[in-house]
Design a protein around this nucleic acid. Structure first.
Length: 708
DNA sequence: CGCGGAGACCTTTTT
DNA sequence: GGTCTCCGCG
């Protein structure tokens, strides 16, 4: 035995690593070394002579799996594994499902080259189906909008419910129209199938159905995986629960790790019962608890504990702090979000001067747009940062245009890709694209379709010709990266130059994209990776050493930093009003809990009283309820110099707490004063001078700075 | 039927 | 700032 487990792990963790066979449930608090424990468990299994391919490690992001397996590889270098070659199989449920479904595509009604639809593809298709059914939610309120239909249909499938059940749960107004909407859902499903495509939900659903309906396949996979380990089990849904159960049905060596206090994905139908009822579902389950927190200072921990205590639906299990006493968390309040941003930027540079490494500082927020003022401020000050959340690299228009071309080579039935591709060529709009599509469908292969004289629409002949030329060049290209370059060189470059003032940056992006593609095995593999990659963070770039991280709280899950700023903690900011409307207060509080427990030493909570918008129609004015409900002695309040003398929470009565306009009645002058010297309050997005980049929109420039 | 311009509306979280 | 829809011109 080469690894000294006694030394590397505490007794609680050691027990889990050395746990024998059979079902195991590990209830682990924040910062208790969950990931570390699972990692060592995998290493231990390998040391015991388990073949790497007999281990399945399911995690929440592909990145997490990759990091854990890299760590395993350093603990136990592959050569020392007694001849057992190969890598441990690990990744997300979605990517694992995709990999397996590619081998069994014919059993789930698809062919090998099937496309994975992303959210946008699904949304456009749903729109089409709703339109065909004559449903226009803008005119008839009894019906949901395309995006709400999409989310309900997605939720229904993930939760194992019918559309009607979800409809009625979401909105009483929809009661009675379910039957009608069912046909829309059927329409969507059949068109998706005609495109030889699956969407994100299908990956899970079809995987589950495959395991259910084909005992031979289930038997084969379940026999292969002698050990199945699942991290972040509190965020799995009904389908994922079933998949795990079936995959471990032969050997029954299933180890799941999770924390019910960190369940933050109910919008994706995460089923908390999966973890709570685990011992009931798996007879003979050994239950372990990791209750010591090694990450955060006691002060930070007591704030987190005090907050989560406000949740009714919660087990009592306060974490034991193992670190020495540190500093109290700080609460910053400012008048405007711009001031909030400046304050944070000031504090960041102060932290840097006292020796906190840049890579150890993170700013977390509920929603991506809340970080906007801070992005501008950091840009102004030339502070390097990495943005996680909002628009991702692969979701940018020009990247998606090129991806659409690649998808045609992989799957010529991909209607969504056809529509997107064709629309880029001159003279081809929505209806011509549809006509071309109808023609193309009659051909056996892409090659024959683009070489045929029969697909020449009268009006758009030249556009179609260019398109065919591009596709021919792509077919000749040996590798996805060459295909990308072929699209750019033979047409897309001209299109960009004609249409986009910032075409240079976009061309740079595309070259980066081609470089990224070089590491891929083949086209299908590449497209899967692009569609399922959780973010730019997994684009294979070396770890960004010296940049401050700006991240949504959801994406910060499982990570930690020395200093963490949780920003936008105002009424109307966090908890998110929409989530609140859906009755998700407790989930929002868990989110707050996740955010605060990311910090090791320095935790900052910040909020602004005004969001800088035109205050007449919408204004904040109160700190978040998550701050107000905390005991005041648990943090140190730092008010801005220009702040009024009395405390913000003390000045307003409880009854106008929720009122928008009235809340400002008695202190309007303050706002006016505050807005002096600020960017115009009428524009939500203040314009900032961008040196040498004036042509470029502030928005895409921001993204370009951050990524690749 | 494509396309450009104008104006309204908008933002939760993610595989 | 982006995205979507509507409208009128060629």
């Amino acid at each position: 035995m080469k690894i000294d487990y006694q030394k590397e792990l505490n007794p609680e963790q050691l027990e889990v690593v050395l746990s024998g066979d059979g079902p195991c449930l590990v209830l682990a608090g924040a910062g208790s070394g969950k990931t570390r424990t699972v990692t060592y468990r995998v290493a231990y299994l390998l040391e015991q002579g388990i073949h790497p391919q007999e281990i399945l490690l399911l995690t929440f992001t592909n990145k997490a799996a990759k990091e854990m397996l890299e760590r395993v590889n350093t603990l136990i270098p592959p050569p020392s594994r007694g001849g057992a070659g190969g890598e441990v199989i690990g990744g997300t449920f979605h990517s694992t499902a995709a990999r397996i479904l590619r081998s069994y595509a014919h059993l789930v009604g698809r062919t090998v080259g099937f496309t994975i639809f992303d959210e946008d593809d699904s949304k456009s298709l749903i729109k089409l189906c709703l339109k065909e059914a004559g449903i226009d939610s803008s005119r008839d309120k009894r019906y949901p909008s395309p995006s709400s239909f999409q989310s309900m249909w997605s939720y229904a499938r993930n939760a194992g419910l019918t559309l009607c059940e979800v409809l009625e749960r979401r909105n009483p107004a929809f009661v009675g129209v379910g039957g009608y909407l069912d046909t829309v859902a059927e329409q969507y499903e059949s068109r998706k199938r005609a495109s030889n495509a699956v969407d994100f939900d299908d990956l899970l659903l079809l995987f589950m159905q495959l395991l259910q309906n084909r005992p031979d396949v289930r038997e084969r996979l379940a026999s292969q995986f002698r050990y199945v380990l699942v991290d972040e089990f509190q965020d799995t849904n009904f389908i994922q629960g079933k998949i795990v159960q079936m995959l471990s049905s032969v050997h029954r060596n299933l180890l799941v790790v999770g924390d019910d206090a960190q369940s933050i994905y109910s919008f994706r139908a995460a089923e908390i019962r999966n973890i709570l009822d685990f011992p009931k579902a798996y007879v003979g389950t050994k239950v372990f608890r990791l209750t010591s927190n090694y990450r955060s200072s006691p002060e930070i921990l007591s704030l987190a504990n005090a907050s989560i205590k406000n949740n009714q639906d919660q087990f009592e299990k306060p974490l034991k702090a193992m670190r020495e006493a540190g500093k109290k968390p700080k609460l910053f309040s400012t008048l405007s979000t711009f001031e909030e941003a400046r304050k944070i930027a000031d504090e960041i540079s102060r932290l840097q001067t006292i020796g906190v490494p840049t890579s150890e500082i993170a700013v977390l927020f509920r929603a991506a747009f809340q970080a906007q003022p801070l992005e501008f401020e950091l840009m102004k000050r030339n502070v390097a940062y990495e943005f996680r959340g909002g628009l991702r690299f692969f979701e940018r228009a020009h990247i998606k245009d090129v991806i659409a071309h690649l998808r045609l080579l992989a799957n010529m039935k991909d209607e969504a890709a056809w529509i997107r591709t064709l629309g880029l060529y001159p003279g081809i709009g929505a209806s011509t694209a549809q006509k071309i599509l109808d023609q193309v469908k009659t051909f056996e292969s892409l090659e024959s379709a683009i070489s045929s004289e029969d697909v020449s629409p009268t009006r758009a002949a030249s556009g179609w010709d260019i398109c065919c030329g591009v596709l021919k060049h792509m077919i000749a290209a040996p590798h996805p990266s060459d295909m990308i370059r072929a699209v750019v060189a033979n047409g897309y470059r001209d299109y960009l130059e004609a249409e986009q003032p910032d075409f240079r940056d976009r061309l740079d992006d595309l070259e980066q994209f081609a470089v990224f593609a070089q590491t891929s095995k083949d086209l299908h593999n590449f497209l899967d990776e692009v569609t399922l990659a959780e973010s730019y963070a997994s684009t294979g770039r070396p770890a960004s050493g010296s940049r401050i991280v700006l991240s949504t709280i959801h994406q910060a899950k499982g990570l930690e930093w020395d200093a963490v700023f949780v920003i936008g903690l105002c009424d109307g900011g966090f908890p998110n009003p929409r989530a609140l409307a859906e009755g998700e207060v407790e989930e929002e509080r868990r989110l707050f809990y996740v955010a605060t427990t990311r910090a090791r030493e320095n935790l900052y909570l910040t909020y602004a009283l005004s969001d800088g918008r035109n205050t007449s129609d919408f204004s904040y004015g109160q700190p978040s309820m998550f701050i107000e409900e905390l005991p005041k002695n648990i943090f140190e309040e730092v008010k801005h110099e220009s702040f009024f003398s009395s405390t913000p929470s003390g000045r307003r009565s409880q009854e106008n707490r929720w009122s928008g306009d009235d809340a400002w009645e008695d202190n309007e002058p303050t706002i006016v004063v505050d807005n002096l010297g600020e960017p115009s309050a009428t524009s939500f997005y203040p314009s900032v001078e961008l040196k040498n980049k004036s042509k470029k929109s502030g928005f895409s420039f921001l993204r370009d700075v951050n990524e690749l």
